[in-house]
Design a protein around this nucleic acid. Structure first.
Lengths: 250, 250
DNA sequence: AGACTTTCTAGTCACCCTGACCATAATGGG
DNA sequence: CCCATTATGGTCAGGGTGACTAGAAAGTCT
Protein backbone atom coordinates (compact mmCIF):
# COMPACT_ATOMS: atom_id res chain seq x y z
CA UNK A 1 0.00 0.00 0.00
CA UNK A 2 3.01 2.27 0.22
CA UNK A 3 3.00 2.83 -3.52
CA UNK A 4 0.21 2.43 -6.02
CA UNK A 5 2.40 1.04 -8.76
CA UNK A 6 1.13 -1.98 -10.67
CA UNK A 7 2.58 -5.34 -9.80
CA UNK A 8 6.14 -5.61 -10.94
CA UNK A 9 5.72 -9.10 -12.39
CA UNK A 10 2.88 -9.14 -14.82
CA UNK A 11 4.30 -12.09 -16.67
CA UNK A 12 5.77 -15.30 -15.29
CA UNK A 13 6.23 -18.86 -16.51
CA UNK A 14 2.82 -20.34 -17.00
CA UNK A 15 1.33 -22.99 -19.25
CA UNK A 16 -2.22 -23.42 -20.48
CA UNK A 17 -3.82 -26.79 -21.08
CA UNK A 18 -7.26 -28.09 -21.92
CA UNK A 19 -8.70 -31.09 -20.11
CA UNK A 20 -11.68 -33.02 -21.34
CA UNK A 21 -14.44 -34.66 -19.37
CA UNK A 22 -15.98 -36.96 -21.96
CA UNK A 23 -19.18 -38.61 -20.80
CA UNK A 24 -21.10 -41.45 -22.31
CA UNK A 25 -23.78 -43.82 -21.09
CA UNK A 26 -22.83 -47.47 -21.26
CA UNK A 27 -25.06 -50.19 -19.94
CA UNK A 28 -26.57 -48.72 -16.83
CA UNK A 29 -23.95 -46.22 -15.72
CA UNK A 30 -22.44 -42.93 -16.69
CA UNK A 31 -18.88 -43.41 -17.90
CA UNK A 32 -15.99 -41.02 -18.29
CA UNK A 33 -13.00 -41.41 -20.58
CA UNK A 34 -9.76 -41.62 -18.65
CA UNK A 35 -6.17 -42.12 -19.70
CA UNK A 36 -3.38 -43.91 -17.96
CA UNK A 37 -0.58 -41.43 -17.79
CA UNK A 38 2.49 -42.43 -19.75
CA UNK A 39 4.94 -40.02 -18.15
CA UNK A 40 5.65 -38.07 -15.02
CA UNK A 41 4.12 -36.66 -13.01
CA UNK A 42 1.60 -39.24 -11.84
CA UNK A 43 3.10 -41.86 -14.15
CA UNK A 44 0.72 -44.80 -14.29
CA UNK A 45 -2.07 -42.87 -12.63
CA UNK A 46 -5.47 -42.11 -14.12
CA UNK A 47 -6.27 -38.69 -15.46
CA UNK A 48 -8.59 -36.82 -17.75
CA UNK A 49 -7.43 -36.61 -21.34
CA UNK A 50 -5.97 -33.27 -22.28
CA UNK A 51 -2.94 -31.45 -23.48
CA UNK A 52 -1.24 -28.19 -24.04
CA UNK A 53 -2.88 -25.43 -25.99
CA UNK A 54 -0.78 -24.67 -29.04
CA UNK A 55 0.46 -21.20 -29.86
CA UNK A 56 -1.79 -20.77 -32.86
CA UNK A 57 -5.08 -22.22 -31.69
CA UNK A 58 -7.97 -21.01 -29.58
CA UNK A 59 -9.29 -22.79 -26.52
CA UNK A 60 -12.34 -24.33 -28.17
CA UNK A 61 -10.15 -25.32 -31.07
CA UNK A 62 -7.69 -27.06 -28.77
CA UNK A 63 -10.51 -28.89 -27.01
CA UNK A 64 -11.92 -30.04 -30.32
CA UNK A 65 -8.50 -31.28 -31.42
CA UNK A 66 -7.96 -33.21 -28.20
CA UNK A 67 -11.41 -34.69 -28.51
CA UNK A 68 -10.67 -35.87 -32.00
CA UNK A 69 -7.36 -37.31 -30.94
CA UNK A 70 -8.84 -39.22 -28.04
CA UNK A 71 -12.05 -40.51 -29.52
CA UNK A 72 -11.55 -40.27 -33.24
CA UNK A 73 -14.77 -38.32 -33.46
CA UNK A 74 -15.15 -34.96 -35.05
CA UNK A 75 -17.56 -32.89 -33.05
CA UNK A 76 -20.50 -33.53 -35.31
CA UNK A 77 -23.50 -34.74 -33.34
CA UNK A 78 -21.60 -34.38 -30.13
CA UNK A 79 -21.97 -31.81 -27.44
CA UNK A 80 -18.90 -29.84 -26.39
CA UNK A 81 -18.95 -26.92 -23.99
CA UNK A 82 -16.51 -25.14 -21.78
CA UNK A 83 -16.89 -26.18 -18.17
CA UNK A 84 -14.61 -24.00 -16.09
CA UNK A 85 -10.98 -23.07 -15.60
CA UNK A 86 -8.77 -24.29 -12.80
CA UNK A 87 -5.58 -22.54 -11.87
CA UNK A 88 -4.67 -22.98 -8.24
CA UNK A 89 -0.94 -22.69 -7.74
CA UNK A 90 0.39 -26.12 -6.94
CA UNK A 91 -2.27 -28.04 -8.85
CA UNK A 92 0.51 -29.23 -11.14
CA UNK A 93 3.91 -30.13 -9.68
CA UNK A 94 5.65 -29.11 -12.90
CA UNK A 95 4.85 -25.46 -12.32
CA UNK A 96 2.08 -23.01 -12.86
CA UNK A 97 -0.43 -24.61 -15.18
CA UNK A 98 -3.87 -23.18 -15.85
CA UNK A 99 -6.28 -25.65 -17.37
CA UNK A 100 -9.52 -24.97 -19.18
CA UNK A 101 -11.85 -27.90 -18.64
CA UNK A 102 -14.39 -28.90 -21.27
CA UNK A 103 -17.42 -31.11 -21.01
CA UNK A 104 -18.21 -33.46 -23.89
CA UNK A 105 -21.28 -35.66 -24.19
CA UNK A 106 -21.58 -38.39 -26.76
CA UNK A 107 -23.32 -41.65 -27.58
CA UNK A 108 -21.72 -44.91 -26.61
CA UNK A 109 -18.45 -44.23 -28.32
CA UNK A 110 -16.14 -46.63 -30.13
CA UNK A 111 -13.24 -48.17 -28.33
CA UNK A 112 -10.93 -45.35 -27.27
CA UNK A 113 -7.93 -44.64 -29.39
CA UNK A 114 -4.54 -44.63 -27.76
CA UNK A 115 -3.64 -41.05 -26.95
CA UNK A 116 -0.82 -39.21 -28.59
CA UNK A 117 1.18 -39.67 -25.42
CA UNK A 118 1.00 -43.40 -26.02
CA UNK A 119 -1.17 -43.62 -22.93
CA UNK A 120 -3.88 -46.20 -22.59
CA UNK A 121 -7.41 -44.78 -22.75
CA UNK A 122 -10.42 -46.48 -21.19
CA UNK A 123 -13.98 -45.92 -20.03
CA UNK A 124 -14.53 -45.77 -16.29
CA UNK A 125 -17.82 -45.53 -14.41
CA UNK A 126 -17.92 -42.09 -12.85
CA UNK A 127 -18.88 -43.62 -9.57
CA UNK A 128 -15.61 -45.48 -9.40
CA UNK A 129 -13.61 -42.59 -10.77
CA UNK A 130 -14.97 -40.31 -8.07
CA UNK A 131 -14.82 -42.78 -5.24
CA UNK A 132 -11.25 -43.63 -6.04
CA UNK A 133 -10.12 -40.17 -5.12
CA UNK A 134 -6.81 -41.89 -4.90
CA UNK A 135 -7.04 -42.55 -8.59
CA UNK A 136 -7.32 -39.28 -10.38
CA UNK A 137 -4.21 -37.22 -10.85
CA UNK A 138 -3.85 -33.47 -10.38
CA UNK A 139 -7.17 -31.90 -9.37
CA UNK A 140 -9.04 -33.98 -11.89
CA UNK A 141 -11.27 -35.43 -9.20
CA UNK A 142 -12.68 -32.00 -8.49
CA UNK A 143 -13.04 -31.26 -12.19
CA UNK A 144 -14.92 -34.50 -12.71
CA UNK A 145 -17.22 -33.73 -9.81
CA UNK A 146 -18.02 -30.32 -11.27
CA UNK A 147 -18.68 -31.92 -14.64
CA UNK A 148 -21.13 -34.41 -13.19
CA UNK A 149 -22.91 -31.59 -11.46
CA UNK A 150 -23.09 -29.59 -14.68
CA UNK A 151 -24.36 -32.55 -16.68
CA UNK A 152 -27.07 -33.33 -14.15
CA UNK A 153 -28.39 -29.82 -14.05
CA UNK A 154 -28.24 -29.29 -17.80
CA UNK A 155 -30.40 -32.34 -18.33
CA UNK A 156 -33.13 -30.61 -16.41
CA UNK A 157 -33.70 -27.66 -18.64
CA UNK A 158 -31.93 -28.38 -21.93
CA UNK A 159 -32.09 -31.08 -24.58
CA UNK A 160 -28.46 -32.20 -24.32
CA UNK A 161 -29.56 -35.64 -23.23
CA UNK A 162 -30.04 -36.41 -26.91
CA UNK A 163 -26.28 -36.10 -27.34
CA UNK A 164 -25.96 -39.40 -25.51
CA UNK A 165 -28.18 -41.19 -28.03
CA UNK A 166 -27.12 -42.37 -31.43
CA UNK A 167 -29.74 -41.45 -34.01
CA UNK A 168 -32.29 -42.62 -34.56
CA UNK A 169 -33.31 -43.37 -31.00
CA UNK A 170 -36.43 -44.29 -29.09
CA UNK A 171 -38.10 -42.45 -26.26
CA UNK A 172 -36.95 -45.24 -23.99
CA UNK A 173 -33.35 -44.75 -25.06
CA UNK A 174 -33.66 -41.13 -24.07
CA UNK A 175 -35.40 -41.90 -20.83
CA UNK A 176 -32.67 -44.35 -19.97
CA UNK A 177 -30.11 -41.53 -20.19
CA UNK A 178 -32.03 -39.49 -17.65
CA UNK A 179 -32.52 -42.42 -15.34
CA UNK A 180 -28.86 -43.34 -15.37
CA UNK A 181 -27.52 -39.84 -14.84
CA UNK A 182 -30.07 -38.82 -12.26
CA UNK A 183 -30.21 -42.17 -10.60
CA UNK A 184 -33.98 -42.22 -10.39
CA UNK A 185 -36.79 -44.02 -12.18
CA UNK A 186 -39.05 -41.99 -14.42
CA UNK A 187 -42.60 -42.84 -15.35
CA UNK A 188 -42.48 -43.97 -18.99
CA UNK A 189 -45.84 -42.51 -19.89
CA UNK A 190 -45.31 -39.11 -18.32
CA UNK A 191 -41.81 -38.90 -19.73
CA UNK A 192 -43.10 -39.56 -23.21
CA UNK A 193 -45.81 -36.94 -22.87
CA UNK A 194 -43.29 -34.36 -21.73
CA UNK A 195 -40.64 -34.86 -24.40
CA UNK A 196 -43.01 -35.32 -27.30
CA UNK A 197 -44.95 -32.18 -26.44
CA UNK A 198 -41.83 -30.06 -26.04
CA UNK A 199 -41.58 -28.32 -29.40
CA UNK A 200 -38.40 -29.09 -31.28
CA UNK A 201 -37.18 -31.78 -28.93
CA UNK A 202 -38.03 -34.90 -30.91
CA UNK A 203 -38.59 -35.29 -34.62
CA UNK A 204 -40.38 -38.50 -35.66
CA UNK A 205 -38.73 -40.54 -38.38
CA UNK A 206 -41.82 -42.62 -39.03
CA UNK A 207 -39.89 -45.83 -38.52
CA UNK A 208 -39.95 -48.21 -35.61
CA UNK A 209 -37.41 -50.47 -34.02
CA UNK A 210 -38.35 -53.89 -32.76
CA UNK A 211 -36.36 -54.74 -29.70
CA UNK A 212 -35.75 -58.22 -28.34
CA UNK A 213 -38.99 -58.10 -26.45
CA UNK A 214 -42.04 -55.90 -26.17
CA UNK A 215 -43.90 -53.67 -28.54
CA UNK A 216 -41.75 -51.96 -31.18
CA UNK A 217 -40.87 -48.36 -30.38
CA UNK A 218 -41.10 -45.38 -32.67
CA UNK A 219 -37.80 -43.87 -33.74
CA UNK A 220 -36.95 -40.21 -33.42
CA UNK A 221 -34.27 -37.76 -34.37
CA UNK A 222 -33.18 -34.70 -32.41
CA UNK A 223 -35.39 -31.76 -33.24
CA UNK A 224 -32.91 -28.91 -32.83
CA UNK A 225 -34.37 -27.09 -29.83
CA UNK A 226 -31.80 -26.13 -27.22
CA UNK A 227 -33.84 -25.44 -24.13
CA UNK A 228 -36.79 -27.16 -22.54
CA UNK A 229 -39.09 -25.02 -20.50
CA UNK A 230 -40.50 -25.64 -18.08
CA UNK A 231 -37.85 -28.08 -16.86
CA UNK A 232 -38.41 -31.77 -17.08
CA UNK A 233 -38.97 -32.19 -13.36
CA UNK A 234 -41.10 -30.04 -11.16
CA UNK A 235 -39.06 -30.87 -8.11
CA UNK A 236 -35.96 -29.25 -9.49
CA UNK A 237 -33.07 -30.09 -7.23
CA UNK A 238 -31.53 -33.19 -8.74
CA UNK A 239 -28.04 -32.53 -7.48
CA UNK A 240 -26.47 -34.86 -5.00
CA UNK A 241 -28.23 -37.98 -6.05
CA UNK A 242 -26.31 -41.17 -6.68
CA UNK A 243 -25.58 -41.54 -10.36
CA UNK A 244 -23.34 -44.20 -11.74
CA UNK A 245 -23.00 -45.79 -8.37
CA UNK A 246 -21.02 -42.94 -6.87
CA UNK A 247 -21.50 -42.00 -3.26
CA UNK A 248 -21.33 -38.38 -4.21
CA UNK A 249 -18.70 -35.86 -3.31
CA UNK A 250 -17.81 -34.35 -0.02
CA UNK B 1 -0.44 -38.21 -39.01
CA UNK B 2 2.88 -39.47 -40.26
CA UNK B 3 4.22 -39.78 -36.73
CA UNK B 4 2.41 -39.99 -33.43
CA UNK B 5 4.90 -37.89 -31.46
CA UNK B 6 3.51 -35.26 -29.08
CA UNK B 7 3.70 -31.64 -30.13
CA UNK B 8 7.23 -30.33 -29.92
CA UNK B 9 6.24 -27.05 -28.28
CA UNK B 10 4.25 -27.71 -25.16
CA UNK B 11 5.20 -24.40 -23.58
CA UNK B 12 5.30 -20.95 -25.13
CA UNK B 13 5.03 -17.37 -23.91
CA UNK B 14 1.55 -16.88 -22.49
CA UNK B 15 0.01 -14.68 -19.83
CA UNK B 16 -3.08 -15.22 -17.72
CA UNK B 17 -5.38 -12.45 -16.59
CA UNK B 18 -8.71 -12.16 -14.85
CA UNK B 19 -11.35 -9.76 -16.11
CA UNK B 20 -14.35 -8.72 -14.08
CA UNK B 21 -17.87 -8.02 -15.21
CA UNK B 22 -19.30 -6.18 -12.23
CA UNK B 23 -23.00 -5.55 -12.48
CA UNK B 24 -25.21 -3.33 -10.41
CA UNK B 25 -28.67 -1.87 -10.81
CA UNK B 26 -28.78 1.92 -10.74
CA UNK B 27 -31.95 3.86 -11.34
CA UNK B 28 -33.73 1.91 -14.05
CA UNK B 29 -30.88 0.21 -15.86
CA UNK B 30 -28.30 -2.48 -15.43
CA UNK B 31 -24.85 -0.94 -15.15
CA UNK B 32 -21.40 -2.40 -15.60
CA UNK B 33 -18.16 -1.11 -14.14
CA UNK B 34 -15.71 -0.04 -16.82
CA UNK B 35 -12.27 1.50 -16.70
CA UNK B 36 -10.66 3.95 -19.01
CA UNK B 37 -7.40 2.38 -20.00
CA UNK B 38 -4.34 4.30 -18.84
CA UNK B 39 -1.83 2.62 -21.13
CA UNK B 40 -1.39 0.87 -24.41
CA UNK B 41 -2.92 -1.00 -26.01
CA UNK B 42 -6.30 0.70 -26.40
CA UNK B 43 -5.07 3.71 -24.42
CA UNK B 44 -8.06 5.86 -23.58
CA UNK B 45 -10.52 3.17 -24.56
CA UNK B 46 -13.05 1.51 -22.27
CA UNK B 47 -12.48 -1.96 -20.93
CA UNK B 48 -13.51 -4.33 -18.19
CA UNK B 49 -11.46 -4.07 -15.01
CA UNK B 50 -8.92 -6.81 -14.62
CA UNK B 51 -5.29 -7.65 -14.32
CA UNK B 52 -2.62 -10.26 -14.34
CA UNK B 53 -2.86 -13.29 -12.15
CA UNK B 54 0.09 -13.29 -9.77
CA UNK B 55 2.44 -16.22 -9.43
CA UNK B 56 1.26 -17.18 -5.98
CA UNK B 57 -2.50 -16.77 -6.20
CA UNK B 58 -5.37 -18.83 -7.55
CA UNK B 59 -7.88 -17.64 -10.10
CA UNK B 60 -10.71 -16.99 -7.67
CA UNK B 61 -8.24 -15.31 -5.39
CA UNK B 62 -7.05 -13.02 -8.17
CA UNK B 63 -10.63 -12.12 -9.08
CA UNK B 64 -11.42 -11.31 -5.47
CA UNK B 65 -8.34 -9.12 -5.23
CA UNK B 66 -9.21 -7.23 -8.39
CA UNK B 67 -12.75 -6.80 -7.17
CA UNK B 68 -11.50 -5.32 -3.94
CA UNK B 69 -9.12 -3.03 -5.75
CA UNK B 70 -11.79 -1.74 -8.10
CA UNK B 71 -14.76 -1.38 -5.80
CA UNK B 72 -13.29 -1.31 -2.34
CA UNK B 73 -15.64 -4.13 -1.40
CA UNK B 74 -14.63 -7.37 0.12
CA UNK B 75 -16.76 -10.12 -1.28
CA UNK B 76 -19.08 -10.27 1.69
CA UNK B 77 -22.70 -10.05 0.59
CA UNK B 78 -21.68 -9.97 -3.01
CA UNK B 79 -21.96 -12.63 -5.63
CA UNK B 80 -18.83 -13.67 -7.50
CA UNK B 81 -18.64 -16.56 -9.92
CA UNK B 82 -16.45 -17.63 -12.75
CA UNK B 83 -18.01 -16.88 -16.10
CA UNK B 84 -15.80 -18.38 -18.77
CA UNK B 85 -12.31 -18.25 -20.21
CA UNK B 86 -11.34 -16.55 -23.43
CA UNK B 87 -8.13 -17.35 -25.22
CA UNK B 88 -8.34 -16.80 -28.93
CA UNK B 89 -4.95 -16.03 -30.38
CA UNK B 90 -4.90 -12.40 -31.35
CA UNK B 91 -7.41 -11.25 -28.77
CA UNK B 92 -4.61 -9.24 -27.20
CA UNK B 93 -2.12 -7.44 -29.45
CA UNK B 94 0.60 -7.82 -26.82
CA UNK B 95 0.78 -11.54 -27.33
CA UNK B 96 -0.93 -14.68 -26.20
CA UNK B 97 -3.13 -13.78 -23.25
CA UNK B 98 -5.73 -16.10 -21.79
CA UNK B 99 -8.27 -14.37 -19.59
CA UNK B 100 -10.59 -15.89 -17.06
CA UNK B 101 -13.73 -13.76 -16.85
CA UNK B 102 -15.68 -13.45 -13.62
CA UNK B 103 -19.20 -12.22 -13.02
CA UNK B 104 -19.85 -10.10 -9.95
CA UNK B 105 -23.25 -8.86 -8.78
CA UNK B 106 -23.65 -6.23 -6.12
CA UNK B 107 -25.99 -3.59 -4.75
CA UNK B 108 -25.69 -0.04 -5.95
CA UNK B 109 -22.03 0.31 -5.16
CA UNK B 110 -20.11 3.32 -3.92
CA UNK B 111 -18.33 5.57 -6.35
CA UNK B 112 -15.68 3.50 -8.07
CA UNK B 113 -12.16 3.77 -6.79
CA UNK B 114 -9.46 4.68 -9.22
CA UNK B 115 -7.80 1.51 -10.37
CA UNK B 116 -4.26 0.60 -9.58
CA UNK B 117 -3.35 1.46 -13.12
CA UNK B 118 -4.41 5.02 -12.34
CA UNK B 119 -7.25 4.49 -14.79
CA UNK B 120 -10.60 6.16 -14.34
CA UNK B 121 -13.40 3.80 -13.34
CA UNK B 122 -17.09 4.50 -14.01
CA UNK B 123 -20.49 2.91 -14.23
CA UNK B 124 -21.92 2.49 -17.71
CA UNK B 125 -25.37 1.25 -18.69
CA UNK B 126 -24.86 -2.12 -20.33
CA UNK B 127 -27.03 -1.03 -23.20
CA UNK B 128 -24.59 1.67 -24.09
CA UNK B 129 -21.57 -0.49 -23.42
CA UNK B 130 -22.87 -3.15 -25.75
CA UNK B 131 -24.18 -0.83 -28.42
CA UNK B 132 -20.94 1.08 -28.55
CA UNK B 133 -19.08 -1.91 -29.87
CA UNK B 134 -16.59 0.72 -30.81
CA UNK B 135 -16.05 1.34 -27.13
CA UNK B 136 -14.90 -1.86 -25.51
CA UNK B 137 -11.31 -2.93 -25.95
CA UNK B 138 -10.05 -6.43 -26.67
CA UNK B 139 -12.94 -8.93 -26.86
CA UNK B 140 -14.60 -7.38 -23.85
CA UNK B 141 -17.76 -6.72 -25.83
CA UNK B 142 -18.27 -10.45 -26.30
CA UNK B 143 -17.43 -11.12 -22.66
CA UNK B 144 -19.97 -8.54 -21.55
CA UNK B 145 -22.62 -10.04 -23.79
CA UNK B 146 -21.99 -13.48 -22.31
CA UNK B 147 -22.19 -12.01 -18.83
CA UNK B 148 -25.56 -10.39 -19.52
CA UNK B 149 -26.82 -13.67 -20.84
CA UNK B 150 -25.60 -15.52 -17.77
CA UNK B 151 -27.12 -12.97 -15.40
CA UNK B 152 -30.49 -13.09 -17.12
CA UNK B 153 -30.73 -16.84 -17.02
CA UNK B 154 -29.49 -17.16 -13.46
CA UNK B 155 -32.22 -14.83 -12.28
CA UNK B 156 -34.75 -17.34 -13.52
CA UNK B 157 -33.86 -20.25 -11.34
CA UNK B 158 -31.60 -18.95 -8.57
CA UNK B 159 -31.84 -16.31 -5.87
CA UNK B 160 -28.87 -14.22 -6.99
CA UNK B 161 -31.15 -11.26 -7.62
CA UNK B 162 -30.88 -10.54 -3.92
CA UNK B 163 -27.21 -9.76 -4.46
CA UNK B 164 -28.31 -6.57 -6.17
CA UNK B 165 -30.23 -5.40 -3.10
CA UNK B 166 -28.72 -3.88 -0.02
CA UNK B 167 -30.24 -5.42 3.08
CA UNK B 168 -32.80 -5.01 4.31
CA UNK B 169 -34.85 -4.68 1.16
CA UNK B 170 -38.48 -4.76 0.14
CA UNK B 171 -40.21 -7.08 -2.26
CA UNK B 172 -40.53 -4.14 -4.63
CA UNK B 173 -36.78 -3.56 -4.52
CA UNK B 174 -36.28 -7.15 -5.54
CA UNK B 175 -38.93 -7.00 -8.22
CA UNK B 176 -37.31 -3.91 -9.63
CA UNK B 177 -34.11 -5.88 -10.18
CA UNK B 178 -35.93 -8.47 -12.25
CA UNK B 179 -37.81 -5.86 -14.23
CA UNK B 180 -34.67 -3.96 -15.08
CA UNK B 181 -32.56 -6.93 -16.06
CA UNK B 182 -35.28 -8.74 -17.96
CA UNK B 183 -36.78 -5.61 -19.40
CA UNK B 184 -40.33 -6.66 -18.65
CA UNK B 185 -42.98 -5.64 -16.15
CA UNK B 186 -43.94 -8.17 -13.51
CA UNK B 187 -47.23 -8.33 -11.69
CA UNK B 188 -46.53 -7.11 -8.14
CA UNK B 189 -49.02 -9.43 -6.53
CA UNK B 190 -47.94 -12.57 -8.31
CA UNK B 191 -44.29 -11.76 -7.83
CA UNK B 192 -44.80 -11.38 -4.10
CA UNK B 193 -46.64 -14.66 -3.89
CA UNK B 194 -43.85 -16.44 -5.70
CA UNK B 195 -40.88 -15.12 -3.76
CA UNK B 196 -42.49 -15.28 -0.35
CA UNK B 197 -43.61 -18.85 -0.83
CA UNK B 198 -40.23 -20.02 -2.07
CA UNK B 199 -38.66 -21.50 1.03
CA UNK B 200 -35.45 -19.80 2.08
CA UNK B 201 -35.67 -16.96 -0.38
CA UNK B 202 -36.84 -14.14 1.89
CA UNK B 203 -36.54 -13.81 5.64
CA UNK B 204 -38.83 -11.22 7.21
CA UNK B 205 -37.20 -8.75 9.54
CA UNK B 206 -40.50 -7.60 11.04
CA UNK B 207 -39.72 -4.00 10.21
CA UNK B 208 -41.19 -1.83 7.51
CA UNK B 209 -39.90 1.01 5.43
CA UNK B 210 -42.07 3.97 4.58
CA UNK B 211 -41.19 5.27 1.19
CA UNK B 212 -41.93 8.74 -0.15
CA UNK B 213 -45.40 7.65 -1.14
CA UNK B 214 -47.66 4.69 -0.77
CA UNK B 215 -48.17 2.07 1.87
CA UNK B 216 -45.05 1.11 3.84
CA UNK B 217 -43.42 -2.08 2.69
CA UNK B 218 -42.21 -4.95 4.81
CA UNK B 219 -38.46 -5.43 4.95
CA UNK B 220 -36.70 -8.69 4.28
CA UNK B 221 -33.31 -10.24 4.41
CA UNK B 222 -31.91 -12.91 2.13
CA UNK B 223 -32.93 -16.34 3.34
CA UNK B 224 -29.93 -18.36 2.22
CA UNK B 225 -31.52 -20.60 -0.39
CA UNK B 226 -29.52 -20.87 -3.59
CA UNK B 227 -31.98 -22.21 -6.10
CA UNK B 228 -35.59 -21.46 -6.83
CA UNK B 229 -37.63 -24.24 -8.31
CA UNK B 230 -39.72 -24.13 -10.28
CA UNK B 231 -38.27 -21.09 -12.03
CA UNK B 232 -39.78 -17.69 -11.53
CA UNK B 233 -41.35 -17.57 -14.96
CA UNK B 234 -43.28 -20.27 -16.67
CA UNK B 235 -42.37 -18.99 -20.09
CA UNK B 236 -38.70 -19.65 -19.60
CA UNK B 237 -36.81 -18.11 -22.43
CA UNK B 238 -35.90 -14.65 -21.24
CA UNK B 239 -32.80 -14.32 -23.37
CA UNK B 240 -32.59 -11.76 -26.09
CA UNK B 241 -34.76 -9.09 -24.54
CA UNK B 242 -33.62 -5.51 -24.27
CA UNK B 243 -32.32 -4.98 -20.76
CA UNK B 244 -30.57 -1.95 -19.44
CA UNK B 245 -30.55 -0.38 -22.82
CA UNK B 246 -32.56 2.50 -21.55
CA UNK B 247 -35.07 1.93 -24.31
CA UNK B 248 -37.65 1.45 -21.64
CA UNK B 249 -39.47 -1.58 -20.47
CA UNK B 250 -42.59 -2.71 -22.05
C1' DA C 1 -52.77 -71.33 -31.41
C1' DG C 2 -53.39 -69.45 -27.17
C1' DA C 3 -51.72 -67.71 -22.86
C1' DC C 4 -48.15 -65.02 -20.88
C1' DT C 5 -44.56 -61.56 -20.57
C1' DT C 6 -42.69 -57.37 -21.86
C1' DT C 7 -42.56 -52.89 -23.53
C1' DC C 8 -44.73 -49.05 -25.84
C1' DT C 9 -48.45 -45.76 -26.02
C1' DA C 10 -52.75 -43.50 -24.90
C1' DG C 11 -55.76 -42.00 -21.83
C1' DT C 12 -57.91 -40.21 -17.03
C1' DC C 13 -57.98 -37.44 -12.92
C1' DA C 14 -56.89 -34.76 -8.92
C1' DC C 15 -53.76 -31.34 -7.55
C1' DC C 16 -50.80 -27.35 -7.67
C1' DC C 17 -48.96 -23.44 -9.77
C1' DT C 18 -49.42 -19.75 -12.74
C1' DG C 19 -51.12 -15.51 -14.84
C1' DA C 20 -54.86 -12.24 -14.97
C1' DC C 21 -57.55 -9.67 -12.32
C1' DC C 22 -60.08 -7.42 -8.44
C1' DA C 23 -60.07 -5.62 -3.80
C1' DT C 24 -58.38 -3.66 0.33
C1' DA C 25 -54.79 -1.53 3.46
C1' DA C 26 -51.78 2.15 4.58
C1' DT C 27 -49.28 6.11 3.83
C1' DG C 28 -48.47 11.22 2.03
C1' DG C 29 -50.20 15.27 -0.43
C1' DG C 30 -53.34 18.79 -2.13
C1' DC D 1 -61.23 14.68 3.28
C1' DC D 2 -60.53 12.95 -1.07
C1' DC D 3 -56.91 11.35 -4.04
C1' DA D 4 -52.76 9.31 -5.74
C1' DT D 5 -49.68 5.70 -4.90
C1' DT D 6 -47.82 1.61 -3.39
C1' DA D 7 -48.29 -2.74 -0.70
C1' DT D 8 -50.65 -6.80 0.11
C1' DG D 9 -54.29 -10.21 -0.05
C1' DG D 10 -57.75 -12.89 -2.48
C1' DT D 11 -60.33 -15.08 -6.43
C1' DC D 12 -60.67 -17.77 -10.56
C1' DA D 13 -59.87 -20.24 -14.85
C1' DG D 14 -56.40 -22.81 -17.38
C1' DG D 15 -52.35 -25.65 -18.01
C1' DG D 16 -48.90 -28.82 -16.64
C1' DT D 17 -47.57 -32.56 -13.57
C1' DG D 18 -47.51 -36.90 -11.11
C1' DA D 19 -50.01 -41.12 -10.14
C1' DC D 20 -52.48 -44.38 -12.21
C1' DT D 21 -55.24 -47.43 -15.44
C1' DA D 22 -55.70 -49.54 -19.80
C1' DG D 23 -54.98 -51.02 -24.34
C1' DA D 24 -51.61 -52.14 -28.35
C1' DA D 25 -47.97 -54.80 -30.36
C1' DA D 26 -44.31 -57.63 -30.39
C1' DG D 27 -41.77 -62.27 -28.71
C1' DT D 28 -41.89 -66.66 -25.98
C1' DC D 29 -43.43 -70.83 -23.95
C1' DT D 30 -46.26 -74.87 -23.89
Amino acid sequence: MTHSAPPAVPRFPVSVTVDLVIFTVRDDALHVLLVERGKEPFLGGSALPGGYVRPDEGLDEAALRELREETGLDGGRLHLEQLRSYGDPGRDPRGRVITVAYLALGPDLPAPVAGTDAARAFWAPVGEALRADSGLSFDHGAILADAVERARSKLEYTTVATSFCREPFTVSDLRHVYEVIWGIALDPSNFRRKVTRTAGFLEPTGERRTSETGRPAALYRFGGAAVMSPPLLRSGDIAGRGAGGGSGRG
